[in-house]
């Protein structure tokens, strides 16, 4: 690995956890359900970039592309289910706060 690649590698290894942490911070500091889902999306973006980085620097991007595609599909399914839940919660409580979900029974 030459000097430029090493700088690039370290840069990606530092930035991808940062994206994950930005998403985590969003989840920890909000009670709006949509904002929480946005945080989860940003966390998955960080993981996607980390997969792509590992594929690029190990010279095998074709394998990591599979993982990225699987992850995107999982991401879409999560968002679709979350969207259904959000719509139902908004209909029931007329609010998007996570405080209301604590009142659920069962």
């Amino acid at each position: 690995m030459n000097a430029e690649s090493l700088i690039l590698f370290k840069l990606y290894i530092m930035v991808t956890p940062l994206l994950f942490i930005i998403g985590l911070f969003s989840i920890m500091t909000t009670r709006n359900i949509v904002a929480i889902i946005i945080g989860i999306e940003i966390m998955t973006k960080g993981v996607t970039l980390l997969f792509a980085t590992s594929g690029y620097f190990s010279s095998k991007p074709e394998i990591t592309q599979n993982f990225i595609i699987v992850m995107i599909i999982v991401e879409v399914v999560i968002l679709t289910i979350a969207a259904g839940l959000i719509i139902n919660i908004a209909k029931k409580y007329d609010s998007l706060s996570t405080k209301n979900i604590r009142n659920l029974k069962g």
Partner: peptide, 11 residues
């Protein structure tokens, strides 16, 4: 765009 640059065009 970054994924394109990291040689992962399908992703």
């Amino acid at each position: 765009i970054i994924l394109f640059m990291l040689k992962a065009p399908m992703a």
